[in-house]
């Protein structure tokens, strides 16, 4: 079957199997910034935004995303144009091996889009789907607090 998804603001059509998950489709089509890990919705590495809300793409049927908008971490910002959040992750030591970073940043982006001044507790709740085995989470929380402050100051990156 053919589905249409707007990926990172670009309209795309994909031929997919009826039971294929979004993660597999995105990676097959070259969106390698979306990471697969547990494939059971536990780790959060594969998190993308579906209509601005974070979902585990490993458990999202690609057909269910037909007609919707998907944003990957590269749609938030790329190496040439880092988003404030991505810059904050680097500056605050919230990236070590980096495998969880795309999912973590994506979850954080969804939070800050709705809540520009989150508490630490709200950040932890919004990122409770993102496992990180390197940073111990503290640096990630600090990075999101830092990014939120930068965005409130008017940093538009």
């Amino acid at each position: 079957m053919t589905i249409s998804i707007t990926v990172n603001a670009v309209e795309r059509s994909f031929d997919v199997q009826p039971d294929e998950v979004l993660l597999d489709v995105l990676r097959r089509e070259g969106y390698l910034e979306v990471k697969g890990s547990c494939h059971s919705g536990d780790c959060g590495a594969c998190t993308v935004l579906l209509d601005r809300r974070p979902v585990a793409s490993c458990l999202t049927l690609a057909a269910k995303a037909d007609g919707h908008a998907v944003t990957t971490v590269r749609g938030i910002g790329d190496q040439a144009h880092l988003h404030v959040l991505q810059d904050a992750f680097v500056k605050n030591g919230a990236v070590q091996c980096g495998y969880c970073a795309p999912g973590a940043i994506t979850s954080a982006k969804a939070l800050l889009d709705e809540n520009p001044d989150p508490t630490e507790e709200e950040i932890r709740l919004a990122m409770d789907s993102n496992y990180c085995r390197c940073t111990g989470y503290e640096q990630q929380v600090e990075a999101v607090l830092y990014a939120a402050a930068q965005l409130r100051k008017g940093d538009k990156r």
Binding site: G41, T47, P54, V55, A56, L59, S107, L125, S129, N130
Partner: peptide, 12 residues
């Protein structure tokens, strides 16, 4: 409903 499972599943 805002706390069980995890954030990227609660939206699904």
């Amino acid at each position: 409903t805002g706390r069980i499972a995890q954030n990227n599943l609660r939206d699904m």
